[in-house]
Amino acid sequence: MLQTQTSSLSYAHQTVEETPSKVSARGVNVFYGAKQALFDVDLDVPVNHVTALIGPSGCGKSTFLRCINRMNDVVEICRVEGDIRLDEGDIYDLDVVELRARVGMVFQKPNPFPKTIFDNVAYGPRIHGLASNRDEVEEIVFTSLEKAGLLKEVRDRLSEPGTSLSGGQQQRLCIARAIAVNPEVILMDEPCSALDPIATARIEELIDELRQIYTIVIVTHSMQQAARVSQRTAFLHLGELVEVGNTEDIFTNPRDERTQGYITGRFG
């Protein structure tokens, strides 16, 4: 019921070149106090595709990700310059609450709220007033858990605390929580870095399913993960966007020697 209108217009099966941008950034500079963390980044994020941001630690990939839903607003010393558009609209013209309802986020460490599994997923719909009664909340919670591939595992324990789940389940719970708000874009900040390989594989499968409906931007330190889940990859180094292109091209035929050095493991 919720996302049918977007899935019917899905660009998931089109090539990256034919796909319009969901998010486009132009000339993004980010400063932490006097220190500049991002230099003039231009990046387009295609609809219904997975865009991976890779690069060595401290290259600014998470910083860029957090610009898209303005999470950097919370950091007092952080200043963001440049133009970031969501569907052609400047994200700074939107109210930050509205922006974050449209651009969901999944964090590095699974961070379920200290509430029940049900309440975790119901949190977003409740604060945004997306459901007017208990039945509607339940419907959203079940749909979201289903989409996050978690429903089978937790159907009988919805009133147990979210933190009682395993790490991988917690992360899928966080994904379900993000989906429940019905966002257009989901940002994922190294979502698998705290998980074991089996849980990671499960999340990667899920990401591939989710891109039918959502546009996904994922930050990862694992090049294999970027190669597996993304259609488009951007390589950042020391705050600069070095290279962006189709994932296949980046990994098989990088144009920049820094990219080549990174993906062949010479630094990073």
Partner: peptide
């Protein structure tokens, strides 16, 4: 923990 705050803000909580 800051992760709790970020989780809520990331979902669009005021």
């Amino acid at each position: 923990p800051p992760s709790i705050r970020e989780g809520a803000l990331g979902l669009g909580a005021s």
